[in-house]
Design a protein around this nucleic acid. Sequence first.
DNA 1: CACGCATACTCGTATAGACGAGTGGGCAAG
DNA 2: CTTGCCCACTCGTCTATACGAGTATGCGTG
Lengths: 261, 261
Amino acid sequence: MTSLPSVLGDLDPTSDRAVFRQIADQLREAIDRGRFKEGEKLPSEAELVEHYGVSRMTVRNSFSVLTGEGLVHAEHGKGVFVRPRPPVRRLASDRFARRHREQGKSAFIVEADAAGSHPQVDSLEVKEEKASQDISTRLGSVRRVLARRRRYLLDGKPVEFATSYLPLDIARGTQIAEPNPGPGGIYARLEELGHHLDHFEEEIRARMPSPVEVRTLQLASGVPVIHLIRTAYDTEKRAVEVCDTVMAADAYVLSYQLPAN
Amino acid sequence: MTSLPSVLGDLDPTSDRAVFRQIADQLREAIDRGRFKEGEKLPSEAELVEHYGVSRMTVRNSFSVLTGEGLVHAEHGKGVFVRPRPPVRRLASDRFARRHREQGKSAFIVEADAAGSHPQVDSLEVKEEKASQDISTRLGSVRRVLARRRRYLLDGKPVEFATSYLPLDIARGTQIAEPNPGPGGIYARLEELGHHLDHFEEEIRARMPSPVEVRTLQLASGVPVIHLIRTAYDTEKRAVEVCDTVMAADAYVLSYQLPAN
DNA sequence: CACGCATACTCGTATAGACGAGTGGGCAAG
DNA sequence: CTTGCCCACTCGTCTATACGAGTATGCGTG
């Protein structure tokens, strides 16, 4: 019944490459060649134990290599599967341009609808709090800030967690301090309040998620996060908002246009 | 002699959280609190086995969790250490602006010198080859391209691996096809050849590295890569170069300026 | 003093076994 | 036929043991 040999080959006992690495290599190659497709189940631990004649821990060790690479994921009671790639969301550099801010819906909703996905925003929290050292520096030495936290989901799967920070003297008592900031989002409100936006600055990092981020974004292991910190400046060169965003890296492509001069 | 208890605490046998996770949690917290500092050695496996009264595999399992998070790394024969963060290289969005292209040295060299690091560029390969599907699409359906591959190192540590692709009708027979493209790099050459640059488009992804990338960039496990694909357009709207760059994510912060309108 | 080796300590790899817990299919009872 | 349970199969966790290989230290020999 086992057609594994046709896909997987044998171990090389003369190789100094560790057995679990050889197994991982063979599985990886089989996946790369499409012998196992996205979402498909790999041979079970028991089958591989039998096929290679090694102990179960050695097979599990191979799986843990592939899991760390983000290639596969295990499901308790079911098996180990080739990790499917989620639909990717493209973030264009003009996504905050004034011309996109006309209609009522947020960019996230509009975009998702267009892509045929079901968008959702939750875990709203809006409150005043002490600014962290970093946020304080970016906003120009403010002590306390208004923090707006929200999580974005596509088809029920969380993809992004964002917090906006605004100086109290700008945001307090305005619609920005309300759970729903109204059409066009807080940038529209800022402009109505006389803070004409001049430009944004975005800082991008990538790293492995903290345990909290793994939980919040329901990340499979082997999936990094993109950490984006955007600062909005008004025409007076004042930083009027800092937005701290953590995204599931496998769900995003960021895109920027740069002038050549 | 062990002062571990003062740092690490005990296990909670009533908890349904797996033992190796509890141990990982305690170590992570100790690191976060600075009880173990950057580059410092954690207790050895044997010490933790003794302290917690568990088997060695359980301790190793904890370490593998932290390793996957990029928090620690093991050195054979020495111990497990808190992973030091390398000096970060900031890439500003105007790094390819014409005004930075005047002097002879490349941006990478200038920048590194300024930061007091020792820069180095190696594994140069310049050759004509068949364009991949993706590159062909980006360059506007070309069949073959000139590929320029190089690796960038800071203080001996590789941080970035980049390949530039150019259409043959532009690059063949010019200095661009030489190992050393001359002062100002290939963008200066392109402009001299009459391809006046208009703008760049950059696409950014983050993911776990492939085994090849792990080797090329000497990546510790738990370090993702930033994958940046830049396309250069001339004033005729023609794509004249595609640069595919893979960076060690822990060594980079990308920074972009976006207009608000 | 300098060199080399023995040794103890480190992590790396691998085996064998045990029990637990989630999943799904088949079978038996109603 | 439907319901519910049992069982087989899956991965998760943990123990105990063994040997290998890289590193550092110190001691003894030359």
